[in-house]
Structures are given as structure tokens and as C-alpha cells.
Nucleic acid binder design. Structure first.
Lengths: 216, 216
DNA sequence: ACCTGAACACCGTTCAAGT
DNA sequence: ACCTGAACACCGTTCAAGT
């Protein structure tokens, strides 16, 4: 025995590392993830991780990609036959659900699709479906982008979560219309849900107006 | 002379610190801001900052708030008389401009208004103007939230910036519709601009539909 | 009150050494 | 190939000491 430097079977793998990192992020947040802590969780020493990932950031990117992989894309299948409006709405709901399931990784996801395979698959599916529905390529690109803006923005900056649960923080002399802002903290999810649903509906209704104009 | 522990006039102030931090964030990004580095920029030692702010995070919050303070709110003045649609659009453009002027601080801003005075002033102005225009309080809350989602999401996750400028990164077999994705990196600002303008227009058009329905 | 240097408990990452 | 401990150059924050 003694100083077991290399076992015959690898102790780690990318999958193992991503799994432990995901669990740690979900349980304790992004700040809890240090290479030493993550390695300890896996029963190895810190530098071992560098045999499988080049940087800590690559590990977090992989965690984010695993979340993107949970987004349902079946509504964009050619065989599905859903109207582009319905498909876009259902996708937005599925996307948001994936993000609110793993809120702590959203800041990483919000940086853009980058090189993450699942994130790119999402962008590809939306673009393809919009083009098939008759949108010009340029607008299809815009739609993929703007939906992403809204969905990640909503998951990241949850409006209500942004307010502090403390009446004294909001002097009515300073903010005449926010008298009950501290109440928002209590009704957090309701405000988030309502704003999200209202926004998705508005976006799709508004896009419909442009769609009709394009088809004359 | 020798070990000057305390001068008769303070070397630092909150304003001085926020100014130096803003400059550093703009020039080199969030990661460049360490308490030691920031202090060096101000000609003092690291721990000095803790006489004026309780944590480094409070300094970054103050930097974010200074950006919020640059957002034009005059379109929401009662005397301005602009239609709520026009006011919302003009405000969104002003808000986005403030964020793209200081892109590195957006991740901090996107966390929500929290206790930042200028951020709260923005939320207050939007809410007040929507209520005055005839929106019920609940919808006015939603509108403030969803516009913020979209604007910060757009500033944060700039779609095009998210793609890598490297043709080999995107195998057409994996992403059948993203064949020219690497081209997006070149047309970065154009895609961002187009997606933002399309999205704002869609949001406001869609809200108009709901507005008409509410007024019967 | 406001600054200092020293110290504490951390970081991400590199690297020679082991099997 | 894959793990280790030691080391490097950092972190944010606390605190006693100085004026």
C-alpha cells in the first residue's frame, strides 16, 4: 500500500467531477466550489482535477451544459407540427424550469452559449424551427437571441428576490411608489412567475405582429 | 515624518474608492478588482478600504449603483406627457446604453435592485408611470420586472459574444442550422442591436394587446 | 477616526515525484 | 496515465498598533 500515487483504475472521470460539482453548486452555491473542496468531496487531492479539466472554469461550463441538456426541444421537431408560437412558448417554459431547478449555475449559463454542446444544440433547434416556420434567417437569429435574453435574465435577476425583506430599507420619501416593496420578498415566486408569463406572452404576441407584416 | 499612520485629512472616501473601482472595472474587468490592487491604485494599503466599506462586495454594489444612476428617467415624468409605450421604449434604450457603456459590471447589476438606491429609483419610476397610464398595480409590477429581465439579459448574455470566433468549433453534423455561427462573432454588435430592438418592439406591441384587453 | 503591517485561512494552478 | 505533496503567487478580512 502506502502513498498510492496511481491506482490501476482511475479514481476520477469528467462525469464524476461534473456530477460532484453539480451537487455542490446546487447545495451550497457557486462560491462553495473551490478545487480543494470539490476534490475533497471526491476523495482526492486538489491538483488531481487538472488531469481531467484544464481549468476550474471548464468544470463550471460543463455543469452549465448539463443543465442546458435538460431543456426539452421536442416541440421544435418537424414531426411535432406545433405552431411556431406554441413551440416557442412551451420551450421558454421548459427552459426556465431547467434554470430555476439549478439557480446557482445561471450566472455561468447567462454568459452565452460559448462552446457548450448542449447550449449550442438549443440555439440550433430554435433557429431551425423559426426558419422552417417562414421567418427570414436574420429574424430567426434575433428570435433565438432575444428569447435567451429574456429567459436567462428572468432566471438570473429574479425581480422579487432582488428586494430585501425589510420594511425600513425603503423610505417612501425616496421611492414614492414602492411603499410595499418589502412585501415583494414574501410573494417572490408569484411575482417572478407572473412577470415571466406576462413577458413570454407579450414577446410572442409582439412577434406575431411582425410575422403577419412579413407575410404581407 | 516616518510611518504616517493617520494624516490630518483622510486619504480616502467612499466617492474616491467607488471612482477608482469603476475605472478599474471598466479598464480590466471584474476579476481585476482585488482589495489589494484597488488600494494600490489609490495609494493606500489593502485594509484601509474597510474603514469605508464593510466588504468588497459593497464596493461593487456601489459601482453598479453609479451605473444605474446614469439611466435617464425623464420620460416617466408626469409633465413629459409621453405615451407609456414610447416612454417604455425610450427608457429601455437608455438603460441598455448605460449597461453597454460598462459591460463588466453588468453581472453585479443583474442580481437585482437589492438595496441600491439608484436601482430602486429606476424601479419606482417605471412602476409609477405604468400605474398612471392605467395599468393595474399587479401588471405594473410585472412590467417593471420583465423589462429588467430583458434588458439585463441582453446586456449580460450578448448572444453573438457567446459564440466563439472559430469555424472548427461548430461541426455542421452536430448543429445543422448553425453553419455560419462563427460568422456571428464578426457581426457581434449588429446581432445584439437587432435582437434587442426586435425584442423591445415585440414586448411593447405584446403589452399593448394586453392593455387594450384590460380597458375592455 | 483612519491608516499601517502582520497574520489567518483560504484561493487556482504548476510541477517534480511516484507508480 | 493519473495521482500526490510541496510550492508559488495570490485572495478577503481581522486586528493590534500607531497617530
Amino acid at each position: 500500500m502506502s502513498a498510492m500515487a496511481r491506482p490501476r483504475k482511475p479514481l476520477l472521470s469528467r462525469e464524476l467531477i461534473v456530477g460532484a460539482a453539480s451537487a455542490l453548486v446546487d447545495a451550497e452555491g457557486l462560491e462553495a466550489v473551490s478545487t480543494r473542496r470539490l476534490a475533497a468531496e471526491l476523495g482526492v487531492s486538489g491538483p488531481s482535477l487538472y488531469n481531467h479539466f484544464r481549468t476550474k472554469d471548464e468544470i463550471l461550463e460543463a455543469v452549465a451544459d448539463a443543465v442546458s441538456a435538460q431543456v426539452d426541444l421536442s416541440m421544435f421537431d418537424e414531426a411535432d407540427g406545433r405552431d411556431w408560437r406554441t413551440a416557442l412558448h412551451d420551450w421558454a417554459v421548459s427552459y426556465r424550469a431547467a434554470l430555476t431547478d439549478h439557480p446557482h449555475i445561471v450566472p455561468v449559463l447567462a454568459r452565452g452559449p460559448g462552446r457548450r454542446p448542449a447550449g449550442l444544440r438549443v440555439a440550433d433547434a430554435v433557429f431551425g424551427a423559426m426558419v422552417r416556420a417562414g421567418w427570414p434567417a436574420a429574424q430567426a437569429t434575433y428570435i433565438g437571441a432575444l428569447m435567451r435574453y429574456f429567459i436567462t435574465g428572468s432566471a438570473l435577476g429574479s425581480f422579487a428576490r432582488g428586494f430585501v425583506d425589510d420594511a425600513t430599507a425603503y423610505d417612501p420619501a425616496d421611492y414614492p411608489h414602492l411603499g410595499q416593496a418589502h412585501l415583494l420578498a414574501e410573494r417572490q415566486e408569484q411575482v417572478d412567475e407572473g412577470a415571466f408569463e406576462t413577458g413570454v406572452r407579450a414577446l410572442i404576441d409582439g412577434l406575431s405582429v411582425q410575422y403577419e407584416a412579413i407575410l404581407r
